[in-house]
Design a protein around this nucleic acid. Structure first.
Lengths: 182, 182, 182, 182
DNA sequence: TATGAATGAGGGTTCATTCAT
DNA sequence: CATGAATGAACCCTCATTCAT
């Protein structure tokens, strides 16, 4: 942990920048300038650059922060006896995390270096849930990722309904499916 | 209609810019520069600015172009005898339109001045489908819009599955719903 | 000539920027900022960038301006009957050009894309002068280039002496050379 | 000498920084950052700044280091019986020192505060050599300094030829000089 | 003293917008 | 009207210098 080696004030600044960046990316998108982030964090622009040499590094670091919890949760769920429940539970967590950080939602489920760890686990949970017949077999991870991304864009209201719809749609069913072709 | 008053060449330029902008926004996102659009349209930057004073105006105009077809379709479907089928059909069209113009998908279903006409009609189709019990009563338009937006982000594969999941999830069912709480 | 196609005012601005840049590079070196050059030329920074997308392009353009005359002169001298005289005359011109644009002297004799045309001609003149015995055979172009560069750094006085020394040193002689080893 | 008052470790740090700076300035030019020098010297940036408050001070100090040897040599040569030999020998040393520290060559022969001691001695050697007729009487120190600077820019090859040319050009001769005017 | 984190002015460059031609 | 040159604010990033630890 290189962070352990940073001086107390540096660690505090780094954390503050990360926090501000996470908030600002979440609420205003990735296009917010590094200057603005520095200003809101109460540090000089150079301080941001020192901790995160490029803006991309900063985005990645924010993503890593978000993914840490998700990865832990995914690993816990993977050890569960109920593959279906595990998958659907993780789906909800993904949506909530993405919704809380809207600007980063796309990256969260994607294959970017930072978020890859989440994707790997989400894929595994999906496969396992399909193997036990809890999730319809015709969906692939890309389908799920797209729908999750969509759920995260739900603004100004609770996420439950939208997640509920998504889960119901994904659940395996023996009912004959109706035709939805346009 | 101010367009009636434009000279023939001006009207042609306006149309060409709109066409090019729609294409590049769809394929490369909204970050493409106005210069680049002008260049590809074979006009000067000033010509773009004359017809669309700000870049935002250009985006809005492109949206209006896209929505015209959707509005027509929605109106046709609204005259149909089958509210459920009408709604699900429109859902597919929305997704396809959004996917074909990825950079604008978010605005398509939203309340922006440009896309409001689509939203009004989509809301009406939803309500009617819910009234006849074809769509679960607990979803609201914002839920649907979010999920549609998600579907449009499905890259590198067919949209059918993702739309299918969405429709299945939205369909009204008497089966007891399972608990998806995290 | 693309320049011919520029509007009159654009051509004037381009020329003005080039002129200012040449002056400023000559007197203050290449480290002067593009902003400063724009300011002194009385144009916006964007105007400089439009004509010379990168700073390097600007430097190259200034060099090209300088080299044009030298190339013409070298070609004229190459057609002369007196290889020795041609070479020594060109040497003087090189030094004068370099001294007048000190910041660029190094690039002038070098192999940079812009100045390569000068180098090619200087090499040819040197070889021809050596072939007729007018220049000592043990020097190579790199030696000459270094010495020319040195002459250009002569500040606050006439260049004649320094060029004279250089020419005398380069001239072929049958006198036994004295030992200069340290 | 303030150095006498420094603690042993401080003196060691100062020497190490100087040594590293001399090396990197010589091989990579003056544009290398102070951070980089500190890093290679294994000290903090603050330590560099403590010993050399500004970057310019550091450059000057490096120059002073280089000049020490040259000053000693010049003094030894000045006590010699052969003014001509002394001058030409020193010329060679100057060139070699400059070539070994290319980034500093310009300053070495100049009137900068650091290198003034060298200049004073070089001037004296020149005058004496001219007085005994070993060096042509029409050159002044500025001429010599410029030519020496040029020699130091000779890259990728031996310095002997270039120094040889310079010495031959400077040597007094009774031969009628040819006309080098352009 | 030594450290290296913090600073912030300034670097080169891009681009939406304006306006003379 | 069409043009595209001009504008200048804003972008991300670097680095000499300062100062709390």
């Amino acid at each position: 942990m290189a962070e352990r080696l940073l001086r107390a004030d540096a660690r505090r600044n780094r954390a503050r920048v990360l926090e501000v960046a996470a908030h600002v990316f979440a609420t205003e998108g990735l296009s917010v300038s590094v200057h603005e982030i520095a200003r809101r964090a109460g540090v000089g622009t150079g301080t941001v650059s020192r901790h995160f040499p490029t803006k991309d590094d900063l985005v990645t670091a924010v993503l890593l922060t978000l993914t840490a919890d998700l990865v832990a949760e995914a690993d816990a769920l993977a050890a569960t006896e109920d593959p279906g429940g595990a998958f659907f539970a993780f789906l909800g967590s993904l949506v909530r995390a993405g919704a809380a950080h809207r600007g980063l939602a796309r990256e969260l489920t994607g294959a970017g270096a930072a978020a890859g760890a989440v994707e790997v686990r989400a894929r595994a949970l999906l496969v396992r849930a399909q193997e036990v017949g809890a999730v319809r077999p015709d969906v692939c991870y890309a389908d799920v990722a797209a729908l999750v991304t969509g759920c995260t864009t739900r603004e100004g209201g609770p996420l439950e309904t939208v997640v509920g719809v998504l889960c119901d749609g994904l659940r395996h069913t023996t009912r004959p499916r109706e035709d939805n072709s346009a």
